[in-house]
């Protein structure tokens, strides 16, 4: 069970006071075992910050992060890596471009384990076959490109590999928790479009009010209440659309992850 207790995070605290931004304000969150969580919010609402605080990239100003009762707030990213598999928003960050597909897999295979200076970094053939089998499930043809550098692959292929890397080691750790957080940014584009329309309408209302004041005659008066009504409708529509889109995204994400989790269950081996 993952618990976030009263976490507050303020950015730009040391600089100009006007620049300071409260990203998280007294956040409380509990994720139970086996639960699937989607966090939805507009840009700058703190989705990524929440994720960063869970994985340790950012330290909270106050509050605690608990994992099955164990306080992990002070642990560094690499120290808690064994508890979390992370898929980054940017597909370029999740994998190492100059290393081959196989080398990337081997890296994730040793997450949370001691890395020896004397032991050869490539595992034997059985593990390689397992990697191939896992990659084959994505239907991207990655299983035949094990020795290729990840840098030559497309963003989508790299993201698929990142996903696999994020889920590899959880099958072996004694910890039963398997948390994967998915922050969806697909609603972003929709939001920008709606915001533009809303802004335009608001400007028109403002102008109409001005015109009405100066004109002062009934004939030239623009119907403000009509504009306001359409603005209201637009906002409501937008909310509905976002909800709809989020639902679709959520279902897609669940499907995607279910596949990955099932894959790791069927292919689980001991090392």
């Amino acid at each position: 069970m993952l618990t976030i207790k009263n976490v507050t995070k303020v950015f730009n605290m040391t600089g100009n006071k006007d620049d300071a931004r409260k990203a998280l304000d007294n956040l409380n969150l509990t994720v139970n075992d086996g639960e699937f969580v989607t966090i939805i919010g507009s840009n700058g609402s703190g989705k990524t910050t929440t994720l960063n605080i869970i994985t340790g990239e950012k330290m909270p100003d106050s509050g605690k992060v608990l994992l099955s009762g164990m306080d992990i707030t002070k642990l560094k990213v690499h120290q808690r890596a064994k508890y979390f598999g992370r898929v980054f928003q940017d597909p370029m960050i999740g994998t190492s471009a100059e290393m081959s597909c196989l080398e990337n897999m081997e890296l994730s295979f040793r997450r949370g384990k001691h890395r020896s200076m004397l032991k050869w970094g490539f595992s034997d053939n059985t593990v390689k076959l397992l990697f191939q089998k896992q990659l084959a499930e994505f239907d991207l043809g990655l299983e035949n490109r094990l020795s290729q550098k990840v840098g030559v692959m497309s963003g989508g292929q790299r993201q698929a590999l990142t996903l696999l890397m994020a889920s590899t080691d959880c099958r072996i750790d004694t910890e039963k928790e398997f948390y994967t957080m998915h922050v969806n940014v697909e609603t972003g584009a929709l939001r920008v479009q709606a915001e533009r329309e809303i802004n335009e309408l608001q400007n028109r209302i403002k102008e109409a009010k001005k015109v009405n004041k100066t004109a002062g005659t009934q004939a030239n008066e623009i119907n403000v209440s009509e504009l306001e009504a359409s603005l209201k409708k637009l906002k409501a529509d937008y909310k509905g659309k976002i909800k709809e889109k989020a639902e679709v995204c959520k279902n897609e994400a669940i499907e995607f992850y279910r596949k990955a989790v099932e894959q790791y269950k069927t292919n689980s081996i001991t090392r």
């Binding site: 560094k76 990213v77 980054f88 960050i93 999740g94 190492s96 290393m99 890296l107 997450r111």
Partner: peptide, 13 residues
Amino acid sequence: MNPQMSRAQGINT
């Protein structure tokens, strides 16, 4: 090559 990814893979960079 990728310090952020390395940390996420449990490497003390």
